[in-house]
Amino acid sequence: MSLFDSITPEDLSFLANLFALTLTEGKSASDNNVFGNFLAAVSTNILNIAAQQEHLKSLEEKHKQIKNLKKQIKKLKK
């Protein structure tokens, strides 16, 4: 079970806002800007990794489908 399986979209949004407010409290605009850009870069990398994971999983499933179809064709030819 994933950590995020039991969190509603509203709760996740609330947590994100709470973290943002907590992490930026008392910091300068410059510090917040740098930190925000850093988090955006980390987020982009996480999304890239997730996209590649999904792509590779999709390719694996397609290869399995092709293999199964080839087996079915082979059986039908007999």
Rank of each mutant, 00 (worst) to 15 (best):
A50R: 09
L76V: 07
A50G: 00
N68F: 03
A40E: 06
D11H: 01
L23D: 08
L39M: 06
D31E: 11
L76Y: 14
F35W: 13
L47F: 04
G36N: 08
A20P: 00
P9R: 00
A40L: 05
L47C: 01
P9Q: 01
Q72I: 06
I66R: 07
A29S: 10
S28W: 02
A41N: 10
L76R: 15
E60D: 12
F14I: 03
A51K: 08
N37V: 00
Q72T: 10
D31I: 03
K70C: 08
I46C: 01
G36C: 03
A41K: 07
S28K: 07
K77W: 03
N37K: 06
E60F: 03
L21M: 05
K77G: 05
Q52D: 10
T8V: 04
F19K: 09
G26E: 11
L18A: 14
F38T: 14
P9G: 05
E61K: 04
V42M: 00
L59D: 07
T44E: 07
F19S: 09
K64N: 06
N48T: 08
I7Q: 00
L21K: 10
A16N: 10
K62R: 05
K64Y: 05
A16P: 00
T22K: 09
K27F: 00
F19G: 00
K77N: 10
I49T: 09
F35T: 01
S28C: 08
P9E: 08
N17D: 12
A51C: 06
D5V: 04
T22Y: 04
H55N: 12
L3A: 12
S6V: 05
L69Q: 14
H63T: 14
S2F: 04
G36Y: 06
T22N: 04
A16F: 12
L18R: 05
N68P: 01
E10F: 02
T24C: 12
K57E: 15
K62S: 06
L59E: 15
Q72L: 15
M1V: 01
S6L: 02
L39V: 02
G26F: 01
F4Y: 11
H63F: 12
T22D: 06
F14H: 09
K57A: 15
G26I: 05
V34I: 15
T8G: 09
F19C: 10
D11T: 07
K75E: 14
S43N: 05
L12E: 09
A50Q: 11
L18W: 09
A50N: 09
I73F: 07
F38M: 12
I46D: 03
H63C: 11
E10L: 02
L18K: 02
L18F: 12
K70H: 09
K70L: 13
P9H: 03
K78G: 14
Q65T: 12
F4W: 11
K77V: 14
F4S: 14
L18Y: 04
A16H: 11
N37P: 00
D31F: 06
K64V: 02
K70I: 13
K62E: 12
S6F: 07
D5M: 08
S43F: 02
L18T: 08
H55Y: 14
L21F: 11
L15A: 02
Q72A: 14
Q65W: 07
D5F: 02
